[in-house]
Structures are given as C-alpha cells and as structure tokens.
Amino acid sequence: MKTKKSIRILVAEDDDDDKLLIIKAFQKTLSIENITCVSDGEELINYLHKTSNSENSQFPIPDIILLDLNMPRKDGKTTLQEIKNHEEFRKIPVIIFTTSNLKEDVQMTYKMGTNSFITKPGNFKDLVKITQEINNYWSNTVVLPD
C-alpha cells in the first residue's frame, strides 16, 4: 500500500471509552499526531475556528471529521449544520460515526451534507477494519482539497 500522505483526522466523541477505542483502532494505520479528539460539538467548532494553514500550526486543519450524533452541549446534527453552512469548513468531509442505525438519521444527515454515515460496530475487530477503510479511502482513493 502506497501512502501519499497521512491524513489528519478530527474525532468528535463525548464518550471516553469510545474515544480510546477509536484512537486505538486508528493507531493501527495512523500515527497518534494525526488524530485529534474533541468531546462535543462546541469544542469542535471552537477548534475549527483556531485552525490555520501554516506549517507548524498548533491547530492544523483536519482532512476529515468523525462526528458522533449524541453529544452534550452541541449535538452532531447541529454541529454538522454549522460546518456545512460555514464558508471555509464546509469543504472538510464529515463522517457521521454513531450508534444509531435509524433510517431517519441516515436520511437527515445526508440531506444536511454529510459525506458518510457509519454505525459503530459491535466489536474491536470490525472497528479496526472500518478505520483502515476510512484511512485508505480518504488518503489513497480520493483526492482531498488543500
């Protein structure tokens, strides 16, 4: 597998366990520096506002966002809406990563502009598989905006 460039992922997840599991799974294919975690929508938006394109930025712009739907303060749907309504942020692909498998949720988030909808798998092996697929797809298969 030829990796052009490691992608930078921003994970919005309020649950510490899930956060840990997602990081562990992504670590199989990505280095820890490429993974950033925030705990809710509010934090995520704040983070995005602090980002800059400069080389040694403390807050680099993420290549993709992994967004949980059920979060305190600002939930996933509201956050998604804010991202997709923002002049700059809307170009960042968003993957809804949630426990929900409700048809309505799928329907609604795609309408709001999400790029993928993934239901959290029931075990770690499947999670690893999914993170590998995400990494492979977004870093190798598609071309991302600068």
Partner: peptide, 20 residues
C-alpha cells in the same frame, strides 16, 4: 435497547483489545 448496546459494544471491544 439502544443505550444497552453502548456498554455492550465496549465490553466486546475491550475484550477484543485485551485478547489482541
């Protein structure tokens, strides 16, 4: 049922991780 899935998923996932 939904919320019950949540900790369960973690039990499974962490035991997988532990085994691994």
């Amino acid at each position: 049922s939904h919320d019950l899935q949540e900790p369960l998923r973690k039990i499974t996932s962490f035991s997988d991780l532990l085994k691994e």
